[in-house]
Design a protein around this nucleic acid. Sequence first.
DNA 1: GAGTGGTCTAGACCACCTT
DNA 2: AGGTGGTCTAGACCACTCG
Lengths: 261, 261
Amino acid sequence: MARPTLDRESPVPLYQQLADVLRRDIEEGRLPAGVAFPSERKLMARYQVTRTTVRSAIGVLKQEGMVVAEHGAGSFVRDPKADRHRVDATRVGMVRPAPPRQESKDVALTRSFRLSAILESAERRMKTTPWISELLQVEGGTEVLVQEATGLDSQGAPSLCRAWLHPRVEKEMGLSEEDLDGYWLPDMLAIKGVPAAEGEDVVEAAMPTPNIKRVLSVPDGVPVLQLYRVMKQDDLVVAVIETHLPADQTTLVFPRIPLHI
Amino acid sequence: MARPTLDRESPVPLYQQLADVLRRDIEEGRLPAGVAFPSERKLMARYQVTRTTVRSAIGVLKQEGMVVAEHGAGSFVRDPKADRHRVDATRVGMVRPAPPRQESKDVALTRSFRLSAILESAERRMKTTPWISELLQVEGGTEVLVQEATGLDSQGAPSLCRAWLHPRVEKEMGLSEEDLDGYWLPDMLAIKGVPAAEGEDVVEAAMPTPNIKRVLSVPDGVPVLQLYRVMKQDDLVVAVIETHLPADQTTLVFPRIPLHI
DNA sequence: GAGTGGTCTAGACCACCTT
DNA sequence: AGGTGGTCTAGACCACTCG
């Protein structure tokens, strides 16, 4: 097998060249998804480089989300379209996520959702971050009522949701933390006659913070989709529903909105 | 200054401990955005570890999108909310991106959009990828008419757009590659009486492929938002408009859609 | 027990930026 | 010129998985 060889004179670093070779192997099907990758020692021997260089190359592919490594077992090519949920954006955050399923083995291709964290946070009052403050239209660092839920959402996709209630609404409605026991905030708002049908949906993506990464068990090289649902009534913000979804498992679907052509 | 020290007995690896220390320094404002980070040699001396370990720790923060390194100059804390564009999702992909601006210096905090690639691809006919095939509802590998445009979109955000035309429409309308000269496909469809007001919008996020990373000049640790706008008429797919947006600069805003409560 | 990936050391040389 | 990050070597020991 005439393996491509690396060019030590090239200005392109060795680990990049090796990453390019391996990426092509994956893209062109010579290294199919799910099967074992050549081990680091094998790659060292085949391409005559140090283990450091091999690991850098694999690191590039890990960052691209193409490869996952499993300690002691090997590295594996990830199938980017496997295990995806089509998530209806109109429902995200509106229904309390289901309790987590039983912890199960983590296989490269069939990553199931593991939960090591709380289903619902005990913490019910938090200071707003700058970004939430902006959306909620309150001053930064205001203490507001927060509800948090983690698990599989109504559509089977893992998610972490936080519902931030505007202090004005809390006060006007005389809502207390106890009132929310057993209720998910959007439900409660509907019950109390605050449908909050106005507003907008804001979508961002970022690499997960260590906390989010742990709670949603997001592997390396996988970003998180963040949907912020701003609920308004009479042009005043009532609440913000923040949802984090692991991007390797989530396809967010919005119904057609009127387009500007 | 009583620096926290690393625990060599801990099961938590040194580079992780160091990353945690540095992350906290950033989060709590001791290392403000934009200013120089301690150099790798300084961190080696301060924490009594090898440069490899220091680089691993900084690598963690780079992957999280908290830090950017500039060769020869130093590493810098990134401000996650700086330089963001609020992008109206109803307009994305519907208007041809503007020509690229002059190439300019790349500063950590004010990354401006650089274009090394084509403004509009010469390639006008491509095979569909599996994912595009699914959205376009054609068989995988079908050759279809594709238009590609890169630059700043109508709202000032950098983006890469591809418009994929369904072969049925191409045939029925007798559209040729020349017809598209000077026109952006969605405009052309509107002109030809195919408003394609139906359909749906699909949002995903992923780490950029090397090509996208280069074209949009996305730094390490930054994912890409992908918006696929499926244009339909009478329940048949007319075209798919694919848009890639660097997630560190883009906040995608959807108007309120009817919610399921 | 053999093989795998994860961590860490102690160096070296280079390319790049700032002054 | 001096400092910075980028690449690479040649080892070592460890924790984990699998047959």
